[in-house]
Design a protein around this nucleic acid. Structure first.
Length: 191
DNA sequence: TGCCCGATTAACT
DNA sequence: GTTAATCGGGCAA
């Protein structure tokens, strides 16, 4: 049985946690797969929801590490982060894509598509496939809802600029599993 | 109270 | 390549 990661894994710099998550396996009530793409958001980063201070929406980001921050995107989709760093740092890692492994039939039903590559390749798609909604906001990543398994070995990591933001686009804080076919968008060569 | 726009996606041309 | 869908947060007034 692989080692399960707990809150201590997240009580480090968000820029250390983010690349370390690539290759780990995330399950939501038994459904999920291998994390292949994430982005880091730090409180001092103008693109972070916590940048302008604590509000009811982003309150979870200001709480303890290892908890899920779920928000609605474009009024339609859900996106999930895990809080990092010591409590109050208000930094988190956005989960952008998984390689589906467990609960494929459930994910296909929820998403309404058959193609494995389209099940979890994007933050909104990932949440739909894993059944993550606002109800999961503030939950710990530890069982029974979530389960995060350590990766067997350190994979090759691709790095590049984050997607879908209009400020602080210069920072290379998007991390991916090099060569994965399950990314929301390819990394450029040399990234 | 009103207005603008977003850590997106799918369906277009 | 472009654009509609859809709605709550954040800020100006």
């Amino acid at each position: 049985m692989p080692k399960l990661l707990d809150w201590r894994f997240f009580a480090r710099s968000v820029h250390a946690v983010a690349p370390d998550l690539i290759g780990a396996t995330l399950l939501s009530r038994g459904v999920g797969g291998i994390i292949v793409e994430v982005e880091a958001y730090h409180q001092t980063d103008p693109a972070a929801h916590s940048y302008r201070g604590r509000t009811p929406r982003n309150a979870v980001m200001f709480g303890a590490p290892g908890h899920a921050y779920v928000y609605r995107s474009y009024g339609i989709h859900w996106c999930v982060n895990f809080v990092c760093e010591p409590e109050g740092s208000a930094s988190a890692v956005l989960l952008r894509a998984l390689q589906p492994v467990d609960g494929l039939a459930t994910m296909r039903r929820r998403r309404g598509v058959k193609d494995e590559r389209l099940l979890c390749s994007g933050p909104g798609r990932l949440c739909e496939a894993l059944g993550i909604t606002g109800d999961a906001n503030g939950l710990t990543l530890e069982p029974p809802w979530f389960e995060l398994r350590a990766r067997p070995s350190a994979p090759e990591i691709a790095v590049g600029p984050r997607i879908g933001i209009s400020v602080a686009i210069e920072h290379p804080w998007r991390y991916g599993l090099k060569g994965s076919h399950f990314l929301s968008k390819p990394f450029r060569r040399s990234e």
